[in-house]
Protein backbone atom coordinates (compact mmCIF):
# COMPACT_ATOMS: atom_id res chain seq x y z
CA UNK A 1 0.00 0.00 0.00
CA UNK A 2 2.77 2.34 0.99
CA UNK A 3 4.64 1.68 -2.25
CA UNK A 4 1.52 2.25 -4.37
CA UNK A 5 0.82 5.53 -2.61
CA UNK A 6 4.36 6.70 -3.16
CA UNK A 7 4.01 5.76 -6.81
CA UNK A 8 0.81 7.78 -7.15
CA UNK A 9 2.40 10.64 -5.27
CA UNK A 10 5.40 10.69 -7.57
CA UNK A 11 3.36 10.26 -10.75
CA UNK A 12 0.89 13.03 -9.98
CA UNK A 13 2.74 15.50 -7.84
CA UNK A 14 6.14 15.51 -9.41
CA UNK A 15 4.69 15.53 -12.90
CA UNK A 16 2.69 18.62 -12.02
CA UNK A 17 5.58 20.32 -10.26
CA UNK A 18 7.67 19.76 -13.34
CA UNK A 19 4.78 21.12 -15.38
CA UNK A 20 5.00 24.32 -13.34
CA UNK A 21 8.77 24.59 -13.34
CA UNK A 22 9.27 24.09 -17.07
CA UNK A 23 8.57 27.73 -17.98
CA UNK A 24 5.26 27.60 -19.81
CA UNK A 25 3.13 30.73 -19.99
CA UNK A 26 1.94 31.96 -16.59
CA UNK A 27 -1.60 30.92 -17.48
CA UNK A 28 -0.62 27.28 -17.88
CA UNK A 29 1.84 27.35 -15.03
CA UNK A 30 -0.96 28.47 -12.71
CA UNK A 31 -3.14 25.71 -14.11
CA UNK A 32 -0.41 23.13 -13.51
CA UNK A 33 0.00 24.41 -9.98
CA UNK A 34 -3.75 24.05 -9.43
CA UNK A 35 -3.67 20.44 -10.56
CA UNK A 36 -0.59 19.71 -8.50
CA UNK A 37 -2.25 21.17 -5.43
CA UNK A 38 -5.20 18.87 -5.94
CA UNK A 39 -3.00 15.83 -6.31
CA UNK A 40 -0.78 16.81 -3.42
CA UNK A 41 -3.54 17.59 -0.97
CA UNK A 42 -5.95 14.90 -2.05
CA UNK A 43 -3.80 11.99 -2.98
CA UNK A 44 -0.31 12.43 -1.78
CA UNK A 45 0.17 13.00 1.86
CA UNK A 46 -2.81 12.49 4.05
CA UNK A 47 -5.35 10.32 2.30
CA UNK A 48 -2.72 7.71 1.60
CA UNK A 49 -1.78 7.66 5.26
CA UNK A 50 -5.24 7.54 6.71
CA UNK A 51 -6.05 11.17 7.41
CA UNK A 52 -9.01 11.98 5.15
CA UNK A 53 -10.32 14.91 7.22
CA UNK A 54 -7.02 16.80 7.30
CA UNK A 55 -6.64 15.97 3.63
CA UNK A 56 -10.01 17.56 2.93
CA UNK A 57 -9.20 20.71 4.93
CA UNK A 58 -5.81 21.11 3.29
CA UNK A 59 -7.35 20.56 -0.12
CA UNK A 60 -10.15 23.10 0.34
CA UNK A 61 -7.95 25.85 1.76
CA UNK A 62 -5.21 25.35 -0.76
CA UNK A 63 -7.65 25.10 -3.64
CA UNK A 64 -9.34 28.35 -2.60
CA UNK A 65 -6.05 30.22 -2.49
CA UNK A 66 -4.83 28.71 -5.73
CA UNK A 67 -8.06 29.54 -7.55
CA UNK A 68 -7.55 33.19 -6.68
CA UNK A 69 -3.97 33.03 -7.94
CA UNK A 70 -5.19 31.28 -11.07
CA UNK A 71 -7.84 33.90 -11.71
CA UNK A 72 -5.36 36.74 -11.28
CA UNK A 73 -2.69 35.22 -13.48
CA UNK A 74 -5.29 34.39 -16.12
CA UNK A 75 -6.52 37.98 -16.02
CA UNK A 76 -3.10 39.64 -15.94
CA UNK A 77 -1.03 37.38 -18.11
CA UNK A 78 -3.27 36.46 -21.03
CA UNK A 79 -1.15 36.21 -24.16
CA UNK A 80 -2.15 35.86 -27.82
CA UNK A 81 0.31 32.98 -28.44
CA UNK A 82 0.78 31.19 -25.12
CA UNK A 83 3.50 28.62 -24.57
CA UNK A 84 1.82 25.45 -23.39
CA UNK A 85 3.43 22.12 -22.62
CA UNK A 86 3.43 21.20 -26.30
CA UNK A 87 5.97 23.78 -27.44
CA UNK A 88 9.58 22.74 -27.82
CA UNK A 89 11.44 24.77 -25.16
CA UNK A 90 8.92 23.71 -22.56
CA UNK A 91 9.16 20.06 -23.60
CA UNK A 92 12.95 20.16 -23.34
CA UNK A 93 12.70 21.66 -19.86
CA UNK A 94 10.15 19.07 -18.80
CA UNK A 95 12.25 16.14 -19.99
CA UNK A 96 15.38 17.48 -18.31
CA UNK A 97 13.53 18.12 -15.04
CA UNK A 98 11.87 14.69 -15.10
CA UNK A 99 15.23 12.99 -15.59
CA UNK A 100 16.63 15.16 -12.79
CA UNK A 101 13.81 14.20 -10.44
CA UNK A 102 14.17 10.49 -11.17
CA UNK A 103 17.94 10.64 -10.72
CA UNK A 104 17.57 12.55 -7.45
CA UNK A 105 15.05 9.98 -6.24
CA UNK A 106 17.37 7.12 -7.17
CA UNK A 107 20.35 8.74 -5.44
CA UNK A 108 18.69 10.17 -2.31
CA UNK A 109 15.48 8.16 -2.14
CA UNK A 110 16.98 5.11 -0.47
CA UNK A 111 16.59 6.64 2.97
CA UNK A 112 12.84 6.99 2.49
CA UNK A 113 12.36 3.32 1.73
CA UNK A 114 9.19 2.06 3.39
CA UNK A 115 9.15 4.86 5.88
CA UNK A 116 5.78 6.42 6.39
CA UNK A 117 3.84 7.97 9.23
CA UNK A 118 1.71 5.95 11.56
CA UNK A 119 -1.62 5.66 9.86
CA UNK A 120 -4.33 7.45 11.78
CA UNK A 121 -6.78 4.59 11.49
CA UNK A 122 -4.30 2.07 12.85
CA UNK A 123 -4.78 3.49 16.33
CA UNK A 124 -8.54 3.04 16.09
CA UNK A 125 -8.71 -0.02 18.30
CA UNK A 126 -6.72 1.55 21.13
CA UNK A 127 -8.25 4.99 21.20
CA UNK A 128 -11.69 6.49 21.60
CA UNK A 129 -11.19 9.17 18.96
CA UNK A 130 -9.83 9.01 15.49
CA UNK A 131 -6.48 10.79 15.29
CA UNK A 132 -7.50 13.66 13.03
CA UNK A 133 -10.89 14.33 14.65
CA UNK A 134 -9.19 14.25 18.07
CA UNK A 135 -6.68 16.81 16.84
CA UNK A 136 -9.45 19.16 15.76
CA UNK A 137 -11.16 18.79 19.13
CA UNK A 138 -7.88 19.56 20.89
CA UNK A 139 -7.44 22.67 18.80
CA UNK A 140 -10.80 23.98 20.00
CA UNK A 141 -10.35 23.01 23.65
CA UNK A 142 -6.79 23.43 24.87
CA UNK A 143 -5.75 25.56 21.93
CA UNK A 144 -8.71 27.89 22.14
CA UNK A 145 -6.77 31.06 22.84
CA UNK A 146 -4.39 30.28 20.05
CA UNK A 147 -7.36 29.88 17.73
CA UNK A 148 -8.76 33.27 18.80
CA UNK A 149 -5.37 34.88 18.20
CA UNK A 150 -5.19 33.24 14.78
CA UNK A 151 -8.61 34.64 13.91
CA UNK A 152 -7.54 38.09 15.08
CA UNK A 153 -4.38 37.86 12.98
CA UNK A 154 -6.47 37.01 9.91
CA UNK A 155 -8.49 40.18 10.54
CA UNK A 156 -5.26 42.13 10.99
CA UNK A 157 -3.96 40.73 7.71
CA UNK A 158 -7.13 41.92 6.02
CA UNK A 159 -6.45 45.47 7.22
CA UNK A 160 -2.78 45.17 6.22
CA UNK A 161 -3.73 44.12 2.70
CA UNK A 162 -6.37 46.84 2.45
CA UNK A 163 -3.88 49.49 3.58
CA UNK A 164 -1.26 48.28 1.11
CA UNK A 165 -3.55 48.02 -1.90
CA UNK A 166 -5.66 51.15 -1.64
CA UNK A 167 -6.20 52.25 -5.20
CA UNK A 168 -5.88 55.59 -7.01
CA UNK A 169 -3.01 57.59 -5.57
CA UNK A 170 -1.58 54.65 -3.66
CA UNK A 171 0.17 52.76 -6.44
CA UNK A 172 3.57 51.31 -5.61
CA UNK A 173 5.62 53.06 -8.29
CA UNK A 174 4.42 56.65 -8.15
CA UNK A 175 5.36 59.23 -5.56
CA UNK A 176 2.39 61.32 -4.57
Amino acid sequence: MCFIMYLIFILFCLKDWVAVASNPSPYFAAFGWLVSCCSMGWWGFWLGHGGPFLSLVLFLIYLGGMLVVFAYSAALAAEPYPEAWGSWPVVVHMVVYMVGVVLAFVVFGGVWYESSWVSVDELGEFSVFRGDAGGVALMYSSGGWMLIISGWVLLLTLFVVLELTRGLSRGALRAV
Binding site: M146, V153, L164, R170, A172, R174, V176
Partner: peptide, 27 residues
Protein backbone atom coordinates in the same frame (compact mmCIF):
# COMPACT_ATOMS: atom_id res chain seq x y z
CA UNK B 1 4.90 27.46 16.87
CA UNK B 2 3.56 30.30 19.03
CA UNK B 3 6.95 32.04 18.94
CA UNK B 4 6.86 31.85 15.15
CA UNK B 5 3.30 33.18 15.16
CA UNK B 6 4.40 36.16 17.23
CA UNK B 7 7.22 36.97 14.84
CA UNK B 8 4.87 36.76 11.87
CA UNK B 9 2.32 39.05 13.53
CA UNK B 10 5.13 41.53 14.13
CA UNK B 11 6.19 41.49 10.50
CA UNK B 12 2.64 41.77 9.19
CA UNK B 13 1.74 44.64 11.48
CA UNK B 14 4.73 46.82 10.64
CA UNK B 15 4.40 46.56 6.87
CA UNK B 16 1.62 49.16 6.40
CA UNK B 17 3.43 51.40 8.89
CA UNK B 18 6.51 51.25 6.67
CA UNK B 19 4.59 52.36 3.58
CA UNK B 20 2.65 54.95 5.57
CA UNK B 21 4.48 57.93 4.04
CA UNK B 22 3.84 56.87 0.53
CA UNK B 23 6.93 57.01 -1.64
CA UNK B 24 8.58 54.59 -4.08
CA UNK B 25 11.63 54.26 -1.80
CA UNK B 26 9.40 53.33 1.13
CA UNK B 27 7.55 50.74 -0.95
Amino acid sequence: LLAWMGLEINTLAIIPLMTQHHHPRAV
